[in-house]
């Protein structure tokens, strides 16, 4: 019987990420945990989940193992379609990517994400990150956005420093429409300790599930804005031994992402 102590935080994120993907869909993945989560989904409940890698591939078969990045040549192995960025983002803008699977350094209650900088100003940032990359385009035009983050108060903030990837903006019903984007927007936020969704009417982040042994109050403590709590709130499902075996031996056997520690400098 698997207990919370047997599952490290990144394995919890990858397993939960896998769980939220429906079969027969196209997932536009970012580097790392989104790839691992999608590979796990393909090996278990969603064999017909197909991936887009933004350098330009669709539905590759990852028989050389996990690509180290979304531009890795291995992400093109046995694809059905291999072009460039324009081609796969066109497909996305047209409406053929069901999920955006992205990360970020900060997120707010409306699912707006920052991955451009943290601290200081735009002109003179304390820490400049790489920038939007594909994330801003994925959050705009994939149908649903799934964000993956570690649950930390400095990441779940009242206001993000810079909106890199659009969420629901200020929460108003027409924010995304006036932005000229096509996707319906934020759908899930996956963390090591909680799974969040969004309230349909207010578009605010809502706690759906929490790690066994934690409580909704403990999760609220880790978040700098007020969370809505789902009426159907429950504990997160733990992976089985088989799931852990798949994650550890098939998805990320070298532990590039799954064995990291949840501490950053």
């Amino acid at each position: 019987m698997v207990t919370v102590a047997d599952v490290n935080p990144y394995e919890m994120i990858a397993y939960t990420g896998s769980r939220v993907l429906e079969d027969q869909t196209i997932v536009f993945v970012g580097t790392g945990l989104p790839i691992i989560a999608s590979m796990h989904a393909q090996l278990t409940h969603a064999p017909n989940v197909n991936l887009i890698f933004e350098a330009g591939s669709l539905a590759s078969i990852l028989d050389q193992g996990m690509p180290m990045s979304v531009g890795d040549t291995r992400a093109f192995r046995n694809a059905v379609y291999a072009k460039g960025l324009c081609a796969v983002f066109d497909l996305t803008q047209r409406g053929y990517a069901d999920y955006a699977f992205i990360g970020g350094a900060q997120i707010d209650m409306y699912g707006n994400l920052c991955s451009t900088y943290e601290g200081g100003t735009y002109a003179r940032p304390r820490v400049r990150f790489p920038g939007s990359g594909g994330a801003g385009a994925m959050a705009a035009n994939c149908e649903k956005t799934i964000a993956i983050m570690v649950l930390e108060k400095r990441r779940f903030v009242k206001k993000v420093d810079f909106i890199t990837s659009i969420g629901f903006g200020d929460g108003s019903f027409d924010y995304r429409r006036k932005a000229g984007v096509m996707g319906s927007g934020p759908y899930r936020v996956i963390t090591n300790q909680a799974l969040f969704g969004y309230d349909r009417d207010t578009r605010r982040m809502m706690l759906l599930e929490y790690l066994p042994g934690k409580s909704p109050e403990a999760i609220q403590e880790m978040v700098d804005f007020e969370l809505l709590i789902s009426p159907g709130i429950k504990e997160m499902e733990l992976p089985t031994e088989h799931d852990l075996m798949l994650l550890r031996t098939k998805c990320d056997p070298d532990g590039f992402f799954l064995k990291r520690k949840v501490v950053e400098n």
């Binding site: 451009t116 035009n141 984007v181």
Partner: peptide, 13 residues
């Protein structure tokens, strides 16, 4: 024309 950047801070900067 593209259907991204709008609604993000990139629209402004």
């Amino acid at each position: 024309p593209v259907r991204d950047h709008g609604g993000s801070d990139m629209e402004l900067v």
